[in-house]
Simulated scan of single mutants.
Amino acid sequence: MAIINLEYYSEVLGMNRNVKVIYPEASKVKGITESDIPVLYLLHGMSGNENSWLSRSGIDRLVRKTNVAIVMPSTDLGFYVNTTYGMNYFDATAIELPKVIHNFFPHLSTKREKNFIAGLSMGGYGAFRLALGTNSFSYAASLSGVLTFNGMEDRFDENAAYWGGIFGNWEQFKGSDNEILSLAERYEGEKPKLFAWCGKQDELYLGNEFAASELKKMNFDLTYETSDGIHEWYYWTKMIERVFEWLPIDYVKEERAI
């Protein structure tokens, strides 16, 4: 297994970007071949960056014996969308980044059935936004994700400069492709399989309950789980292992040191 820091120039954003890649070593992973390796795009939350999953969860240890490559980009505070202030993070992450990755790592699979996406908090929103806004990912997982902004309208007024810069005002946001449930309702083609978890003590819990109910009404294949937990890395580190078990990969659970 190798941990690689890739710096590249993003034509979409007009600036250099960094992405972390965990690349499996064929000789040490049972069943893996040197071509067509499954890929998981793993997204950070607000205040995070491309280093967050590595530094906070020890994810490199979790996948040491597993046949999947992990790509960890950064969207700054841009919510993985094409913002109203002109920074097109959706295009940069959903369209441009996979091309960059496959240019540098040609053995990674380009097949939809072997490309997955997951994230926490803002990244949970991003995982569903990218999966439902493209036809590139067959599985998408959200941990404590912002899957609906219903009941959070006051945030658009309290910090209008920030949220307006990301989504526009509330009226512009509602019904747009940036609203997960509206986007899901319009989705055409083969639906991605979805996974969502949120802690019962998390302020986003009721929003996840509502979003899960609505997605199931739309006949999405959604695995929805809850347990005690708050909006914190302790729970995300535990639940990313659950995501690995859910994904169609040969996940080999690494025993924790005592």
Rank of each mutant, 00 (worst) to 15 (best):
I3S: 13
I4S: 05
E11Q: 13
G14S: 10
V19K: 00
P24Y: 00
P24H: 01
E25M: 07
K28C: 09
V29M: 01
E34N: 12
V39T: 13
S52K: 09
S52F: 07
S55K: 13
S57I: 15
V63H: 01
R64P: 05
V68L: 03
V71D: 01
V71A: 02
D76G: 10
D76P: 05
G78I: 04
Y80C: 12
Y80P: 06
T84K: 14
Y85T: 13
Y89N: 07
F90E: 04
A94E: 02
K99S: 10
V100T: 13
V100C: 04
F104L: 08
E113P: 10
G119D: 01
F137W: 09
S138I: 01
S138N: 04
Y139S: 03
A140S: 09
A141Q: 01
W163Y: 12
G164S: 12
G164W: 03
W170L: 15
G175L: 09
D177V: 09
D177C: 07
A184C: 11
Y187C: 09
Y187N: 10
G189F: 08
G189I: 08
G189C: 12
K191P: 04
L194I: 02
G199S: 11
Q201L: 09
D202N: 13
Y205G: 05
K216I: 09
Y224I: 05
Y224V: 07
S227K: 04
D228G: 14
E232T: 14
Y235H: 06
K238F: 15
I240R: 00
R242D: 10
R242Q: 09
P248C: 03
E255A: 14
A257Q: 11
